[in-house]
Design a protein around this nucleic acid. Structure first.
Length: 153
DNA sequence: GCCAACGTTGGC
DNA sequence: GCCAACGTTGGC
């Protein structure tokens, strides 16, 4: 059973175009327990993920990728040269986990945060909940399908 | 660049 | 275990 997700990335850090070029990416740098738990405990190979650009104008959903490798340790956590270095993590006790995703498509247009917010069909979407800032979050199937449809408009 | 909202840390 | 201080996220 395929599940649906949304994952955020700042495009200067890693964009949908970067993923389109590289085809696959280790989703490193998640340093939030709730987000980690979703990746570690619930994401399965084949799950579909909306790719969201944050901290840019406009913020919004820009494309689609697919989980191609289930959770494994985020090795950047014990890499001293990484900006994601965490002194409490080690190879023996990784603390942080990530999945690998593969590029599926870049949408022909950005579905902006504003548009998502204004759409009555997307009521209850976690992304548009006040104060909600998880970088990895589940998306309901109906919401996912609606957003995919919007992308083609 | 500002700042609200939230998560984490650490003293007690 | 409480909670103040601090750091981060991320829209605006």
């Amino acid at each position: 059973m395929v599940s649906y997700w949304l994952m955020k990335s700042e495009p200067e850090a890693y964009s949908i175009d970067d993923l389109a070029d590289e085809k696959k990416a280790d989703w490193d740098g998640v340093r939030n327990y709730q987000a980690r738990n979703f990746m570690r405990d619930e994401m399965q190979v084949g799950d579909l993920v909306l790719f969201y650009h944050s901290n840019t104008k406009p913020p919004g959903v820009v494309g689609l990728c697919r989980v191609c490798k289930e959770a494994f340790p985020d090795y950047t956590a014990w890499d001293r040269t990484s900006k994601y270095f965490d002194p409490k993590a080690s190879e023996d006790k990784p603390i942080w986990m990530m999945v690998q995703v593969e590029f599926v498509e870049k949408f022909p247009r950005v579905i902006s945060l504003q548009e998502l917010r204004d759409d009555p069909k997307l009521e209850g979407l976690l992304l548009t909940k006040k104060g909600q800032r998880l970088s990895v979050q589940p998306v309901e199937r109906t919401h996912f399908q609606h957003i995919r449809k919007l992308a083609k408009k």
